[in-house]
Design a protein around this nucleic acid. Structure first.
Lengths: 252, 252
DNA sequence: GCATGTTTTGCCTGTTTGTGCAAGAAATGA
DNA sequence: TCATTTCTTGCACAAACAGGCAAAACATGC
């Protein structure tokens, strides 16, 4: 049996059942589980499936961008980043928080006994804050975009324009020294720019996979970042670049 | 069975039923309750559900403290009212839906295959609609009031003023023939009035305990009600009064 | 044919991850 | 209050994992 042949059969079963088991494939193909694991690893690297313990599942192409699907990814890391990020907060501050799973983790990590004013266009962030009695929550309405989990558009921009904040927790889609902070969506980037304009400092918390990557729409230059919260394992060279542009680095 | 698979099934049931029981899941998956508890703990950590004693519930704003206390009340009745209320909808319509547990039940009851434009100031309603791909959702932002589960204030009013709707699902606090539709909160009443003004017809769905009661702030006269959805056990005399003022009565 | 280098595969190594069990803590309901 | 259920924590075991290694199959050049 050819390697290519196995790959095709794996993809077929994945399309039919939505999942495959490593052991099952091994006995079906008459090869060792190690070989199957290698196959799965390769296919995962090509983005054709998502590897999980015991096998693999279909890498939902449509829902990949959707917030609900993403949030299962790198939960631990994001929780650690969130914990460090909330350490930057001072009681009484006012914040902008936009969308993204990292920002939702930050919202959940905000201590219940801290008095804050928080404006957000993310329903996920808003939900996380509804039962915080000391948080004055301002919802930035507008047209809701399911893929982003946030509100965007003219209404959102108008609402942002009327507010100011001490800190802006910017959910970054891509972060690169040269290209700055970038987003995948034009309307989303516009809202982020408005928030950045009306806040005194920008805080960005990112997992390693966002570092040194860029998306089409520019939000702000790398020099606009006041605080950068990263994992301990982040590449030091990249961090040094951001630091030289004025960003304060915080390790989670 | 893959861990990932269990997580997905848990989320599916959560989306369908709004709750899951640890013991039930364990026997359904053929694993120990400890494993299910670990699954639930992980999903809760990712913010995908809210852990409760005995299982888990959907992590939506309607699980917030103030609202959840109410939502435990008369769940069955409200689900029936909701089912009848969505029967009034026609594909392509635009709606205002404001807060309240009954309106949240209505939002959940909206069929997934119906195309609608829905504007709401309730986070509970909004989160119930986020995964309806055919619903164009407009969030009416503003200052969030935890006790109400809705946004109110000048920003909300400004957003409402820019929109119009075919129907307005008015979450009523009190409903009396003489005093009309009334609310407990001044700012809340103001938003309701704005929505009523910009919509072609008002729909009110109420449980019996709201009938023939009144709250301090007046929203609209009883003659403004186009559709009134009530329980089968509602007092006929009261209903006759509303009917004589032009309301169409629908029994759940 | 022969030698060389590459690819694929299976096996072995230690490590990680998921699972069930048991004991103690916490929450619930009478 | 007490009894029961549910939950968390620590532990042990098995399954699954990545990486290194060597044998076999294959291609390439002489």
């Amino acid at each position: 049996m050819l390697t290519e042949e196995r790959h095709q059969l794996i993809r077929d079963q994945l399309a039919a059942d939505g999942k495959v088991l490593a052991g099952e494939l091994a006995s079906r193909f008459g090869v060792s589980e190690d070989t199957v694991r290698r196959d799965l690893r390769e296919l995962a690297k090509a983005g054709l499936l998502r590897r999980v313990y015991g096998g693999a599942v279909a890498s939902a192409p449509f829902a990949a961008a959707s917030v609900s699907q993403r949030s299962a990814h790198a939960v631990e890391e994001k929780a650690r980043l969130a914990k460090t990020a909330v350490g930057l907060l001072v009681a009484g501050q006012s914040l902008f928080i936009d969308g993204g799973t990292t920002n939702e983790a930050i919202a959940r990590a905000i201590p219940r006994d801290m008095e804050l004013t928080i404006a957000t266009n993310s329903l996920g962030v808003a939900s996380a804050l509804v039962d915080r009695p000391l948080v004055e929550l301002i919802v930035l309405g507008g047209r809701y975009v399911p893929d982003l989990g946030t509100c965007v558009g003219a209404d959102t921009l108008a609402a942002v324009a009327q507010l100011g904040a001490d800190l802006f927790f910017l959910g970054s889609c891509g972060l690169d020294v040269a290209r700055g902070v970038t987003a995948f969506d034009s309307a989303e980037a516009e809202v982020k720019r408005a928030m950045a304009k009306n806040s005194a400092g920008i805080v960005i918390a990112v997992t390693n996979d966002k570092l040194a990557t860029a998306a089409p729409y520019r939000v702000a230059g790398a020099d606009a970042i006041r605080h950068l919260v990263v994992e301990k394992t982040a590449p030091p060279a990249t961090l040094a670049d951001f630091q030289s542009l004025g960003a304060q680095i915080h390790f989670a």
